[in-house]
Amino acid sequence: MSDMTPNPDLAIRMSGVTKIFGPDPQGALALLRSGRSKSEVQSETNHVVGLDDVSLDIARGQIFVVMGLSGSGKSTLIRHVNRLIDPTAGEIVVEGTDVLKMSLPELRGFRRNTVAMVFQKFGLLPHRSVIDNVAYGLEVKGVPKAERLEKAAGWIETVGLAGYEQSRPRQLSGGQQQRVGLARALALDTDIILMDEAFSALDPLIRSGMQDQLIELQKSLGKTILFITHDFDEALKIADRIAVLKDGAVQQVGKPQDIVLKPANEHIEEFVREVNKARAIQVRTIMERGEFDPCDQSVPDTARCEDVLPLFAENQWVGVVNDSGRQIGRITAKQVIKALARYSASTMN
């Protein structure tokens, strides 16, 4: 993580981003820099620290999840990426371009072509039909009507809303409205998609389905997705990497299982305690490596304990195969149980 070399694999890079809300952010920034905490700055100056020296490297083609409690600065963070909010200090580079140096027309072009966004409150245009909502970004870009409606219809089908093209957003359920929001962002075909608690307003069952769909979409389209959530389970399910935010500061960044198995501090441990560990632990890390007889059932090496547990009902061993389908090891129920027991015990005391 050197600061000097621009990394071509990075989609988004934030360094030292600080955001202070209030009439004199620079004054409050000096206080913050002198070592005061968020609450001290707030009580002394009435300024709110939204983000405190946030640095993140987000690689291309992954789902990067920012996790934190309500008020921890998640929405503030994600709005810096497309500069809906200007930082008080710091640098934001997206796809190699410094977002803060963009002129207004450049910024508009950047929002039309490079980053699309999905909102917790959907932000659909109530006076437009579903298809016109999905085509909105293309319309803003100046894509001719026939072409944009055709593309929009395709995305509506992808998110499973075929038949609702002419409905108004208010006629749809929350889950359906969020599918419209997702299709609207996907229709722009940007490399980066920002999702601010996109699934938080949905019922658990619909939510789980949307998560699966998002993972599928990411796999097939290879987009970089910056996903915000306050739900650790959701983060574990969809994330390639997770950053945990508290009081506007990043507490830990890592792979889901790093966070679960090696929480950096008490705050994260608190989250981890509640979590379904079978979802966090990858079978790869606890399997027996080596050449074995091919097993009847096998799972990819990215599978989690959660995925293999049901297979033990019928099999003693489950094989683990790599990308090219070659078996690289095997796993038994005993190993899984041991791992779960070990990590549960270690976070109990």
Partner: peptide, 16 residues
């Protein structure tokens, strides 16, 4: 404001 913000995020001009 949520609708206005969404519109802004899609790169609209003030006129749009």
């Amino acid at each position: 404001p949520a609708v206005m913000e969404a519109s802004r995020a899609f790169g609209t001009s003030a006129r749009q």
